[in-house]
């Protein structure tokens, strides 16, 4: 079976600095891939290249076997197949929730309003926000805005969804409601590429963990293997930092008692 997404010898520069170096990554349809790594390692850039928000410099990137780095790629088509959700939601502030959701389906896909609206409302109901259909984004909490942003992408009926640190800007109590939505998509068999710092979530939801550092992929393994026996020294250090943070409350608790 050929991969749905295939990076091969993929390079990307910001000016002189190489931010992605010889990336080889294959994602099968229905797979959930979580990309981990320290800040600035290029994981967000990798997602953005797949959506055409960043321009790649060399190598190959295929979607469904079709080369995207060839001139003449219709990125508008690609973006309809590859949805993206951002850290800061980026809902359109001057539009109601429903108008946010319908802009793509009506203007880009030229779909019929009744049908598109029915789908949007069904998806809103699914994320528990149907009652917010007519409000404006600023009236919603961060967690609610992010769930709407996910629905906005889903309304385009994409085959792949990219999640770029979508809980990083949220208060802790809102993280769960967003992660639950993503978990639901994973269970349904949607192809997902997720960049996150939520380790427990990564472990629970991923079919495969991709660990990156300084623009390179250092290892790719199933989550259990990655979290229990990381192969590279850098991954071990990275995980130690997180386990330190997790153990912190207990330590403090001991000291206090």
């Amino acid at each position: 079976m050929s991969a749905l997404i295939e990076f091969q010898g993929f390079n990307k520069f910001f000016g002189e600095q190489q931010v992605l170096e010889q990336i080889d990554l294959q994602v099968q349809a229905g797979e959930v891939v979580v990309i981990l790594g320290p800040s600035g390692c290029g994981k967000s850039t990798l997602l953005r290249c797949l959506n055409g928000l960043e321009q790649a410099h060399s190598g190959s990137l295929r979607l469904d076997g079709k080369e995207l780095l060839a001139p003449g790629t219709d990125w508008r088509q690609v973006r309809q197949r590859v949805g993206m959700v951002f850290q800061s939601y980026h809902l359109f502030g001057h539009m109601s929730v429903l108008d946010n959701l319908l802009l793509g389906p009506l203007k880009v896909q030229k779909r019929e309003r009744g049908e598109a609206q029915a789908q949007a409302e069904a998806l809103l109901a699914r994320v528990g926000l149907l009652d917010k259909r007519d409000v404006f984004p600023r009236q919603l909490s961060g967690g609610q805005q992010q769930r709407i942003a996910i629905v906005r992408s889903l309304c385009m009926n994409p085959e792949v969804m990219l999640f770029d640190e979508v809980t990083a800007a949220l208060d802790p109590e809102m993280v769960k409601e967003v992660l639950q939505v993503i978990q639901g998509l994973a269970r349904e068999g949607m192809t997902l590429l997720i960049v996150t710092h939520e380790m427990a979530f990564a472990r629970a939801v991923a079919d495969r963990i991709v660990f990156m550092e300084a623009g390179r992929i250092l290892e790719q393994n199933p989550p259990e293997r990655f979290f229990t026996q990381p192969q590279s020294a850098r991954a071990q250090q990275f995980l130690e930092k997180f386990s330190f943070v997790e153990s912190l409350p207990k330590t403090l608790h001991k000291e206090l008692s």
């Binding site: 928000l53 508008r76 309809q80 802009l103 203007k107 906005r152």
Partner: peptide, 21 residues
């Protein structure tokens, strides 16, 4: 915010649609 542009592009809007809507 720059994200408005990127969010618009990510749902497949054309340049004209991005500015217009």
């Amino acid at each position: 915010p720059r994200g408005q542009r990127e969010a618009g592009l990510s749902i497949g809007l054309s340049g004209w649609q991005l500015y217009g809507y």
